[in-house]
Design a protein around this nucleic acid. Sequence first.
DNA 1: TTACATGCAAAGGGTTTGCATAACT
DNA 2: AGTTATGCAAACCCTTTGCATGTAA
Lengths: 140, 140
Amino acid sequence: MDTSLRSTLHERGLRMTPQRQLVLDAVRELGHATPEQICTQVQRAAPAVNITTVYRTLDLLERIGLVRHTHLGHGAPTYSEREHQHVHLVCHSCGEVSETPTELMDALAARLRQESGFELDVTHVALSGQCGDCRAANAR
Amino acid sequence: MDTSLRSTLHERGLRMTPQRQLVLDAVRELGHATPEQICTQVQRAAPAVNITTVYRTLDLLERIGLVRHTHLGHGAPTYSEREHQHVHLVCHSCGEVSETPTELMDALAARLRQESGFELDVTHVALSGQCGDCRAANAR
DNA sequence: TTACATGCAAAGGGTTTGCATAACT
DNA sequence: AGTTATGCAAACCCTTTGCATGTAA
């Protein structure tokens, strides 16, 4: 099914395995998920798969550019498809994670590039704050 | 020396202790530092202080608003004085952490507030990317 | 003499490593 | 055969918890 994965691996002398396909599938299905969540999902299809393999595979998929990880602040990072570019907003009151288009960061990225030569990676860390709902609840 | 710490604690029925003063001092001296680094610094003056106490004290100092922590992405968070407001930029090539004024984020914060009611906490997570030096080195 | 703080040890999440086995090429 | 991939167990880092002791109001 995933010939692009197979051939990308092959180019680098790496092998296609059921585990690798399953991990990639899980990342795609779950959207943004922690290694633990991905492992659980994979184990629905193949219970014997070990979490070590999940970690190693996520690493590999990231190196070959198919997935990326984002630090939401606390706890484990979450993995998602490389294509799924968005900025994560984490509410530190309710913990909710929402997504917002990366264009929001364009002006900031341009300023950083210009003023300090820093090339911003918009997706790698989440922005933290308080979401609208929690602000409203707090105001009461 | 630190009457404001003493009285803030006292208002809440909490006690001033040498450990608490030492931890606050260390946070101030080190700028932005992990609990482990803070512990090492504290132990220069008082070797018996346990890292558990450092964690508990950082928690306490954060609750009473004297310090804050920032997630740099990987690994342990770093603590700094509340007053020292700045945005952290972390280079994921060389790991260097630099600081930049929070005003840089004002426009973004305003947009987020308006468009999604999200109140951005500019200091709580670092921005990630590649610093000027590493970009130059990479270009070679 | 009661509440709060500390130190120590143990447990807890999350992740990595070493090594033997298994599966490709 | 020789390389690569997996599973398992153990180690690792960072942090929290339980409990006994210690210390201040």
